[in-house]
Simulated assay, not measured.
Amino acid sequence: MPYEWISPPQSTPQKMRLWPHNSLPARGMAAFVLTTFTLISIPVLPLLGSPILWGLLPFTLAAVWGMYWALQRNYKSRQISEELVLDETLARLTRINPKGDVQEWDCDRYWTKVTKYEDEGPVPNYVTLRGKGREVEIGAFLSEEERIALFEDLERVLRR
């Protein structure tokens, strides 16, 4: 699951780290790009030595480069992490976005409320934390089932 409690639930402070699911690691991406290049090159091989090859080669290389660029951009956009720290008196959520900017939210733990919007949010089962006059999302990059589990975990921990 792309979130975990870093510290045990009984300890203080309690820390949770959240991150997007990464289904394609760097080695898998390299293998995919190499396989794509190989499969795209097969129809071009009979054209070796002919002038038509030079007409098709830029499009073949552009297709491979486009695939690589799209995968790299997707990988960089998934460089999000969130950390929720719950101590005896304070709840603090820190989010590091893909570009490196940091967003922080904190509230008195007693007044922190977890809300799940089943249909009203930008994604199904949208989970937010509310307090101190603000409402912030948490785990919007998680899958629907993971957001449901996250809501139940947060509700259980904040009730204590």
Rank of each mutant, 00 (worst) to 15 (best):
P2I: 02
Y3F: 12
E4H: 08
S7V: 13
P8S: 13
T12Q: 06
T12W: 09
T12P: 01
T12H: 05
Q14K: 12
M16C: 12
M16F: 08
M16D: 09
R17K: 12
L18D: 03
L18M: 04
L18K: 03
W19V: 01
W19L: 00
P20R: 03
S23W: 09
S23C: 02
A26T: 05
R27S: 00
G28M: 00
G28A: 03
G28D: 00
M29R: 04
A30C: 03
A31R: 00
T35N: 04
T35V: 09
T38Q: 05
T38Y: 08
T38K: 05
L45K: 10
L45W: 11
L45E: 05
P46A: 09
P46I: 09
L47P: 00
L47R: 00
G49P: 02
P51V: 04
P51C: 00
L53F: 11
L53H: 06
W54R: 01
G55M: 11
L56Q: 10
L56W: 14
F59A: 02
A62C: 06
A63W: 12
V64C: 01
M67Y: 06
Y68R: 08
W69M: 08
W69C: 02
A70V: 10
Q72K: 12
Q72W: 15
S77C: 12
R78F: 12
Q79F: 14
Q79R: 15
I80C: 07
I80N: 02
I80V: 12
S81R: 07
E83Q: 14
L84C: 11
V85Y: 07
L90A: 14
L90I: 15
A91T: 04
A91V: 03
R92E: 07
R92S: 04
L93A: 01
P98H: 07
P98Y: 02
K99E: 15
K99D: 12
G100F: 00
D106E: 13
R109K: 11
Y110N: 15
Y110F: 14
K113S: 09
T115K: 11
K116Y: 07
G121T: 07
V123M: 12
P124F: 13
Y126W: 15
V127R: 05
V127H: 12
R130D: 12
K132S: 13
G133E: 13
E137R: 13
E137F: 15
E137W: 15
I138T: 03
I138Y: 05
G139Y: 02
A140H: 04
F141P: 01
E144W: 01
E146T: 03
E146A: 05
E146V: 02
R147E: 01
I148E: 07
I148N: 06
A149G: 00
L150F: 08
E152M: 06
L154P: 02
L154A: 01
E155T: 14
E155P: 00
E155D: 11
R156G: 02
L158W: 05
R159H: 06
